[in-house]
Simulated assay, not measured.
Amino acid sequence: MHEVGVMIEVVKTVENFAKENGLTKIDKLVIQIGELSSMIPRYLEACYPAAVEGTLLQETELKIDILPGNAICKKCNKVFNLIENNNKCPKCGGREWEILCGKEFMIKEIVAC
């Protein structure tokens, strides 16, 4: 479960940002995760309390936004969600596509008091 290490690095990044900007309390941390990324949201949520214990983020709410895993069909140019369509274009049935989005993992927002 690599989510623990990733979440610890996120906490370090947010703490550094807070120190650089003179923040003493953070209310909410918003993370964006693509449907096609290797991160599993429920694992991140599960390890979050341990990652923030004893840090500036200890009382911070974690919010995770899931971004769609979209692709464009190389045959007909239809944009579609890979997961919802089992990696197959719903328009022409093609299985040759290019990923447009869905592999992201980023800190979207840090909400401070």
Rank of each mutant, 00 (worst) to 15 (best):
Y43L: 04
E96W: 01
C47N: 02
A50V: 11
I72M: 05
L44A: 07
N87I: 06
K12E: 13
K78Q: 14
I26V: 15
I26A: 05
P90V: 05
N85Y: 11
W97C: 09
N85K: 09
V52K: 07
C101K: 15
G34H: 07
L57G: 06
K108Y: 11
V111T: 13
N70Q: 14
E98R: 14
K12P: 12
K63Y: 06
N85E: 02
V6G: 03
Q32N: 11
L57C: 11
A46R: 14
L82V: 14
F80K: 03
P68N: 08
T60F: 12
N16S: 13
K28Y: 04
C89Y: 13
V52L: 11
G34E: 06
G54L: 12
F105Q: 09
G93V: 06
I40R: 01
A112I: 02
E96Q: 05
F80E: 00
K25P: 00
R95W: 03
I64T: 11
K78V: 10
A112L: 04
E9P: 00
P41R: 01
L23T: 12
A71Y: 01
E96M: 02
N70C: 07
K78I: 03
K74A: 08
P68I: 12
K78A: 11
I72C: 04
E45M: 06
E3P: 03
V111A: 15
I8L: 12
I110A: 12
V111E: 15
V30F: 02
I107Q: 00
K28P: 02
A50N: 03
T13K: 06
L62E: 09
I66W: 05
I64E: 01
K108W: 10
I110N: 05
K75P: 00
L36E: 04
F80N: 02
C101E: 10
N85Q: 10
D65I: 11
W97D: 01
E59T: 13
H2E: 09
N86G: 08
I33R: 08
E61N: 09
S37N: 03
F105W: 13
I31D: 10
V11G: 08
L57M: 11
